[in-house]
């Protein structure tokens, strides 16, 4: 049976860090960015081809989008590194929900805390033209304990 040398372990961790730095230095990757509603829908459709989109909002930073579907369904698209992940919300998937002014004129932050071990936080920067309150109301239907953990504020709240 083999024993593990702590020095080998340390050198291995340092090697991983070195590869990480070399990867950053070499580049060749582009942080994921949503340029349009069509982008968000196309990415969602790869994972959920049956989703029938009715309304889409892409965040001001292009890092996330929220999509409303037929029958009250809600889907999320979110950047991670140079890729995206998608989620179709089910009952109880939202643990907390808030809508707050962002500091920029009329902009709002829609924040969700999800019952998702690998993706607990979702944030969307809403433009002044977006009806944040309506999205907030839609999302409240997915709270694990409706009426709780809801925080709503701001000019469109």
């Amino acid at each position: 049976m083999q024993e593990f040398d702590p020095l080998v372990l340390l050198l291995s961790v340092l090697s991983v860090f070195a590869v990480f730095l070399i990867n950053r230095w070499l580049g060749g990757f582009t942080p994921a960015h949503l340029n349009s509603k069509a982008d968000a829908l196309a990415r969602l459709k790869l994972d959920y081809p049956a989703f029938e989109e009715q309304e889409t909002v892409v965040g001001g930073d292009g890092k996330s989008a929220i999509l409303a579907g037929a029958g009250g369904g809600i889907a999320l698209v979110q950047a991670i590194g140079d890729r995206f992940l998608t989620r179709l919300l089910g009952p109880g998937d939202v643990k907390a929900l808030s809508l707050e002014p962002s500091g920029n004129a009329g902009m709002q932050h829609l924040r969700l805390r999800l019952d998702d071990f690998t993706n607990a936080a979702f944030e969307l920067l809403l433009s002044p033209e977006t009806n944040g309150a309506a999205w907030h109301k839609r999302l409240a239907a997915f709270l694990d304990a409706p009426g709780q953990s809801v925080q709503e504020a701001g000019p469109h709240g």
């Binding site: 070499l26 990757f29 590194g81 890729r83």
Partner: peptide
């Protein structure tokens, strides 16, 4: 493609 976070 390699992305640093994914690679690490």
């Amino acid at each position: 493609e390699y992305e640093p976070g994914d690679t690490a």
